[in-house]
Amino acid sequence: MTAIQEWASDFYKCFIKEDRYMLLVSGVGVTVKVSLLAVFIGIFIGMLIALCNLSKRKSIRFIGGVYTDIIRGTPSVTQLMIIYFVVFATVDLDKWIIAAIAFGINSGAYVSEIIRAGIMSVDHGQTEAGRSLGLNAFQTMTRIVIPQAVKNIFPALCNEFIVLIKETAIVGYVGLMDIQKAGDFIKSATFIAFMPLIGTAVIYYVLIKLLTLLLRRIEKILRKSDVR
């Protein structure tokens, strides 16, 4: 058998036979679902923690500090397993939602630092201008500071989103069949390592490439008030 024939036969066994490609397709679905929900949870938690960290009250800053500290100080696999097997052990929720919550909690710690930096990057004169017009602190934050901060933090937030997608490759630990787990499953079923693992890598790569292109477009729209 020539190399090409061997290659084709491996390809057939890994992806076509017994509709194995469907494993990967549904794996993409799981990865996307978990990542998307986790991003929203992460941004929400990140905002809360960022506001805690920027608070004038020491006790509130303490809460934010402890949260960031614990999340950054432990591996995400450990966090995922604790959330799944301990915190949500007796709660009847879809697996993927629990996983998304775990990743969201994890991502929130990193997002909070990004948001905090973004808010601090907006010149203090902006806050003063808003307050001098009679806006209250909340109105100044939501109408003047945050819209400018979003523009500044968008690239860093995109990066966090991409890291998060790749991070979800560990959901196999709690029995979810994402892209990584699907590739792994095919490897075990066929005893072929090359095809499914390279396939897995290619799928992640394409997914993230598409996302990057999309986010670039959004960033361009956000920058329309800059004249550079």
Binding site: D123, G125, Q126, E128, I144, Q148, S225, D226
Partner: peptide, 8 residues
């Protein structure tokens, strides 16, 4: 420093 809102 004027402090106009640059995003508006």
């Amino acid at each position: 420093q004027f402090n106009l809102f640059p995003h508006l």
